[in-house]
Design a protein around this nucleic acid. Structure first.
Length: 631
DNA sequence: GACCAAATCGCCCTCTGCTGGCGTGCC
DNA sequence: AGGCACGCCAGCAGAGGGCGATTTGGTC
């Protein structure tokens, strides 16, 4: 029989439940009930194609550890998977003349067959599975809700036989072949390593396109209670196989309202009361009604605060024993029986493992109605809704700032209103950062290895870490890296060197428009113009504190006052203040000195070494603006 | 039917990490 | 003055811990 292979990239799956681990005892309790199908199909399941197979773990760890192995204290449990495909599933349902095999492409491996639809089988487009935990080996019956695509087969009851080859995880459905038929054809006996299941297709409760596939295990030791329809009826198996073991057949009572079955009439009767609305035991405090006295008592204890189950290791006490057991596991024994097969996570509660599994599968059942966000649990969705409502329920008691999350408030209080605020020292440099997350950013930006070299803008040095580059470039900060080829002069900036070079070339590009005098620097020209051609210019004058002699430069006045015995004196607070001090008294004298100096100082002497003060030509008073040093 | 253990649902919390706006200092 | 880098900060989501309350089913 030819098969049409359809490879489904694993990325298209949004739901693949991983196998779970539960204590073996949990399985033993399943003996006389077929499965626990309380949960209706989850939201979104209606759009799902749900191949049923032993989950093949993706990681290497799981390859080494077969999922169906049984260990001493725990047992791997197969979890039925709900796998979503895109809306367009036309590719899934070619005319199934020869059957369709749906495969997935796991990471790093070849295609894995998921569900093989034999000839004539309805082209199952979407299947939703109840989210329950099953042991494949011990499974007796389960239901798959199938949304049919365009075919009318759902309206009729039909049967298939599913064979599960453990080696491949392949489920094979062939329409119109029930157990008897297969047996008559000599095909009933499963091959080695293969397990057979009877699949009955019946119209679903919701009608329409839904059909229900009831899969019964035909190969479970000692299990003869394949459920059948009929409330409270005990059904006897009539297949040849079951006839063969007729003496082991038990009466099975099946609930019409749910999937409950039991071999005990008492259990069945009591179960039927769970479907009754009768709750005769009423709480006198809140008028809530309960089915049993025990339930009422536990409830009343919540009102009265009665907690009969006290923890022996701490002061906690609980209403029920189950709460105490759970508390002890969380706080004292740290027993975590629910272990994830895909990672090392283990939890005290099954619901926590179920929630954790979503971090592997990416399943997000809780959809925000206002945006595209979907959450993995209800609390995150509720928290997310604050982003739409603007609600900020957490208020700082000090500054009354409000926050959307308690954790944000806590950090705010610690950072803003607490002493001894913790700081985070960068392990690679002296930086201290207030928040750990910001330290992470710091490390990422400054201390991560860069494949491409970061080159220094000042020299040829190159680094792979940004911090090292920055530290290196700081060494250039005060470096006089521009060195004159003709003398020992060096400077930090190239423009300074350009000016200096003119002292060697004699170039004087700045010419006074009034007297045609030439200068090497523009500011020298400006100073010249102000002194000799600008009548409004008032030069700065620095007076000796002892003798009152005026100087046009602060440094010259200091040198004089040291000899004069007046001490170093104090510089004026600003140029404006400086100009106001004694300016009228000494102005005339200073102008006379400058005029003389301008006449006496030769241009050659202006080309003395940088910073050198020109010797005082007359009476120890130096002319202003006659050094090579740039202001 | 009572009792009990286990399972389940639901809620809230903390811790953690990422992101982007903002202020500030440096170049 | 403007660009840039970086720490500070609040917003937000992921993941998991813990427990209250209830339901379910087995046993006596």
């Amino acid at each position: 029989m030819a098969e049409t292979e359809i490879s489904v990239p694993s990325g298209q799956f949004t739901k693949i439940k991983a196998p779970e681990l539960v204590p073996e005892v949990l399985l033993e309790e399943e003996e006389d009930r077929v499965c626990r199908g309380r949960e209706p199909p989850g939201p979104g399941d209606g759009q799902a194609l749900c191949p049923y197979r032993p989950l093949q773990a993706k990681g290497p760890e799981c390859e080494q550890e077969p999922l169906l192995t049984t260990q001493e204290s725990e047992k791997h449990i197969l979890t039925l998977q709900t796998v979503h495909f895109s809306e367009d599933v036309s590719w899934l349902s070619p005319q199934p003349q020869d059957g369709v095999q749906v495969t997935v492409q796991p990471e790093g491996g070849g295609p894995q067959p998921l569900l093989w639809l034999g000839e004539g089988a309805p082209p199952c487009v979407t299947i939703s599975l109840q989210e329950e935990v099953y042991s494949l080996q011990e499974m007796q019956v389960m239901e798959l809700h199938v949304l049919e695509s365009g075919l009318a087969g759902a309206s009729e009851e039909s049967k298939f036989v599913v064979s599960l080859a453990e080696s491949s995880g392949l489920l094979k459905l062939e329409k119109g072949q029930d157990e008897d038929q297969l047996r008559a054809e000599g095909r009933f006996e499963p091959q080695a390593g293969e397990q057979l299941f009877l699949v009955e297709a019946t119209p679903g409760d919701e009608g329409g396109d839904e059909i229900v596939l009831t899969i019964s295990n035909l190969h479970v030791e000692g299990q003869e209670d394949t459920p059948a329809s009929g409330q409270g009826h005990a059904d006897k198996a009539d297949s040849p196989k079951k006839t063969k073991k007729a003496k082991e057949v038990k009466r099975t009572f099946r609930c019409d309202s749910c999937m409950f079955t039991s071999s005990r009439i008492s259990s069945f009767n009591r179960h039927m009361k769970t479907h009754s609305a009768e709750k005769p035991h009423m709480c006198h405090l809140c008028l809530k009604a309960f089915r049993t006295v025990t339930l009422l008592r536990n409830h009343v204890n919540t009102h009265t605060g009665t907690r009969p189950y006290k923890c022996g290791d701490c002061d906690m006490a609980f209403v029920t024993s189950g709460e105490l057991v759970r508390h002890r596991r969380y706080k004292h024994t740290h027993e975590k029986p629910f272990k994830c097969s895909l990672c090392k996570y283990a939890s005290v509660e099954a619901s926590k493992l179920k929630r954790h599994i979503r971090s592997h599968t990416g399943e997000r059942p809780f959809q925000c109605l206002l945006c595209s966000y979907a959450s993995k649990d209800t609390y995150k969705l509720k928290r997310h809704m604050r982003t739409h409502s603007g609600e900020k329920p957490y208020e700082c008691h000090v500054c009354h700032a409000r926050f959307t999350q308690s954790g944000t408030l806590k950090i705010h209080i610690v950072q803003k209103h607490s002493e001894n605020v913790p700081k985070y020292q960068c392990p690679h440099c002296a930086t201290v950062i207030a928040r750990k997350s910001d330290l992470r950013v710091h490390l990422r930006n400054l201390h991560t290895y860069k494949a491409t070299e970061l080159k220094c803008r000042c020299c040829s040095a190159a680094f792979h870490e940004r911090y090292a580059l920055i530290q290196h470039q700081k060494t250039h900060k005060n470096e006089k890296r521009f060195k004159c080829e003709h003398c020992s002069y060096a400077c930090k900036q190239e423009r300074h060197m350009t000016v200096h070079i003119r002292t060697h070339t004699g170039e004087k590009p700045f010419t006074c428009l009034s007297c045609s005098k030439c200068f090497r620097q523009k500011q020298l020209l400006n100073a010249h113009f102000k002194k000799y051609h600008d009548a409004s210019f008032i030069p700065a004058v620095y007076g000796c504190p002892k003798c009152g002699k005026g100087f046009s430069r602060w440094s010259n006045m200091q040198r004089h006052s040291a000899k004069c015995g007046a001490g170093p004196g104090k510089p004026a607070a600003s140029g404006k203040v400086r100009r106001t001090k004694r300016k009228l008294a000494v102005r005339k004298e200073a102008v006379q000195e400058d005029e003389v100096a301008a006449k006496k100082v030769s241009p050659v002497r202006l080309e003395q070494c940088p910073g050198e003060v020109v010797p005082v030509p007359y009476g120890g008073v130096a002319p202003e603006g006659v050094t090579c040093e740039e202001p």
